[in-house]
Simulated assay, not measured.
Amino acid sequence: MDMKARIAQELKGRTPAEVVELVVYNCRSSDGEVEGLTEDYARLEVLSVVNVGLSSLAKLPPLPRLRKLEASDNAISGGLDALAERCPALTHLNLSGNRIKELSALEALQNLKGLRSLDLYSCEVSTAADYRENVFELLPQLTYLDGYDQEDNEAPESEGDDDDDDEAGPPGDEDDEEEDEEEDEEGSEGDDGEVGLSYLMKEGIQDEEDDGDYVEEVEEEEEEEEDGDVEAAAVGGEKRKRDADDEGDDDDDDE
């Protein structure tokens, strides 16, 4: 399939003005130039034309919002002047696996003031002595070259483009988590209430048992006192009887 037909297929019922990201693969440019892409793609922000047989970007249409261009594994050797004029918002450019041999071929990128990341991996220019130092000197606006900054710190994978989406998670997750937390809290309160009620009931039963023991002790003490009184009364009666008998005996003696 040629590149023009492949781009038309990728529309999938949309108009070119509605396309923000376009990925073109499994196709070939007939003359090594960009085909099927027009200035009607004015809202395009991400374009991927990997391994489609490009040798030049000279026919790239004006894409004022394009910020990321993936053009690796082609046969591009120069002609990068069109990028600064037609893609002024470009921040990421991947030219890995192309035929860029000389550092001078990159001079046209000096006019891309917003360019932050450039990939030239597997290009012949990347084998030159002091390659990294020379490229950073030529293009001071760069932060990352082949995925690393000047201090050899690796670039973040998303570089902030998709951080919000990654952190957000599927819709409704937060609500589900909040509901689960509320249910856990309610369950915990119910458990505490049940334990508290059981504890109070247990305490009440214990109090009743203690009161019963106390009543039994009081009753036993009262019974012991009553028995003592009866015994004392009996003893007193016997004493009175003996006293009366003694008095009778005294009367007899007097007679």
Rank of each mutant, 00 (worst) to 15 (best):
residue 252 D to L: 12
residue 55 S to C: 12
residue 250 D to M: 07
residue 31 D to L: 09
residue 203 E to H: 13
residue 205 I to M: 12
residue 187 G to F: 03
residue 36 G to H: 07
residue 247 E to H: 09
residue 172 G to L: 07
residue 143 T to F: 07
residue 2 D to W: 00
residue 237 G to C: 12
residue 170 P to E: 04
residue 153 N to D: 15
residue 141 Q to M: 12
residue 143 T to Y: 09
residue 73 D to G: 04
residue 173 D to Q: 12
residue 228 G to Q: 10
residue 67 R to Q: 10
residue 31 D to I: 01
residue 63 L to F: 07
residue 21 E to C: 08
residue 109 L to M: 05
residue 129 A to T: 04
residue 150 Q to F: 10
residue 104 S to C: 05
residue 242 R to T: 12
residue 21 E to N: 11
residue 1 M to W: 01
residue 168 A to H: 06
residue 163 D to T: 11
residue 80 L to A: 06
residue 46 V to I: 15
residue 82 A to D: 04
residue 132 R to F: 08
residue 200 L to P: 04
residue 13 G to N: 01
residue 139 L to W: 06
residue 196 G to M: 11
residue 130 D to V: 07
residue 13 G to V: 03
residue 82 A to I: 07
residue 172 G to A: 08
residue 134 N to W: 00
residue 43 R to L: 14
residue 73 D to V: 02
residue 4 K to E: 15
residue 53 G to D: 06
residue 129 A to I: 09
residue 228 G to R: 10
residue 240 R to S: 15
residue 100 I to L: 13
residue 250 D to E: 14
residue 54 L to Q: 07
residue 115 L to Q: 03
residue 151 E to R: 12
residue 157 E to V: 15
residue 49 V to M: 15
residue 191 D to E: 14
residue 20 V to P: 00
residue 70 E to Q: 14
residue 155 A to K: 14
residue 47 L to I: 09
residue 58 A to C: 03
residue 137 E to C: 13
residue 49 V to G: 06
residue 88 P to L: 05
residue 81 D to L: 09
residue 7 I to D: 04
residue 146 D to P: 03
residue 216 E to M: 01
residue 216 E to R: 05
residue 156 P to V: 10
residue 116 R to V: 11
residue 102 E to T: 12
residue 176 D to Q: 10
residue 17 A to G: 14
residue 211 D to V: 03
residue 167 E to K: 06
residue 31 D to S: 14
residue 91 T to M: 10
residue 29 S to M: 00
residue 23 V to K: 10
residue 63 L to S: 07
residue 88 P to G: 08
residue 96 S to P: 02
residue 94 N to M: 03
residue 10 E to K: 06
residue 69 L to H: 08
residue 53 G to A: 02
residue 249 D to S: 10
residue 147 G to L: 08
residue 109 L to A: 03
residue 5 A to C: 01
residue 129 A to D: 15
residue 27 C to Q: 04
residue 3 M to Y: 03
residue 139 L to P: 00
residue 209 E to P: 05
residue 244 A to P: 02
residue 224 E to A: 14
residue 94 N to L: 04
residue 50 V to F: 06
residue 174 E to T: 01
residue 252 D to E: 15
residue 246 D to G: 11
residue 178 E to L: 14
residue 59 K to F: 03
residue 225 E to L: 02
residue 225 E to V: 06
residue 41 Y to V: 09
residue 99 R to S: 10
residue 119 D to M: 02
residue 151 E to L: 15
residue 242 R to D: 14
residue 69 L to V: 05
residue 225 E to C: 04
residue 194 E to R: 11
residue 78 G to D: 00
residue 218 V to G: 01
residue 40 D to G: 00
residue 174 E to C: 05
residue 211 D to P: 06
residue 70 E to T: 02
residue 162 D to C: 10
